[in-house]
Amino acid sequence: MTNDDDALLAALRAGEDLAREHLYRTYAAQVLTWTIRLSNPGMDAEDLAHEVFLVALRDIYRFRGDSSVSTWLFGITRRITANARRRHAIRRLVGLERAAELPASGRSPEEDSLHRERRREVQRALQGLSPRHREVLALVDLDQRSTAEAAEMLGVPTGTVHSRLHAARRALAQHLRRRGWDPAGPPTAELPAAELPAARLP
């Protein structure tokens, strides 16, 4: 834990508003990115990020400072997204699933639609992985952290990160190829061939 983290924790424990603001400003984007990458389509990533910070502030006195604030927040994010995925699966099972809409961005409807579609595409791609593979892929490949750092954040040995990463990449490649992703260019389609637009047929 850095000295900055120490000071931030001390100020948060003292209940300073400025410290909370600093926490949000420093980690909001990072936590939101994690919740997007670890959640499934239809889940509200922003809500999950909100919950991560609330739990963090509630449990601030239980944080012993053994790791960095970033690692601590990632641990909370893992737990909360795992619970949310479980709840989401149950809701889908009983037919209560509600499509989460992205908040109004101020952009044109076309841009919004494209952005939404792109995110769903990524989430669908990652959805095919197990949670462990997804976490390690998100940290190493998407966050571009080192395997040692990912090992610390996940609380596993580096060798385990390597093996998980290997398995995750292989599974993702197979999954994406099945979905029509081409490494050389944009994906041919997100839809099954039978549902491709007729204009693309010869």
């Binding site: 995110r119 490949d141 290997h166 490494p183």
Partner: peptide
């Protein structure tokens, strides 16, 4: 040994899963 993913895929996945500045501001 651990074969990397094609960089194009990684970049698409990374960009597609980044929150927009407006989303971050809204969360804050």
């Amino acid at each position: 040994l651990v074969q990397p993913l094609p960089p194009e895929w990684v970049e698409r996945l990374r960009q597609g899963s980044l929150p927009t500045p407006r989303e971050v501001a809204l969360l804050r």
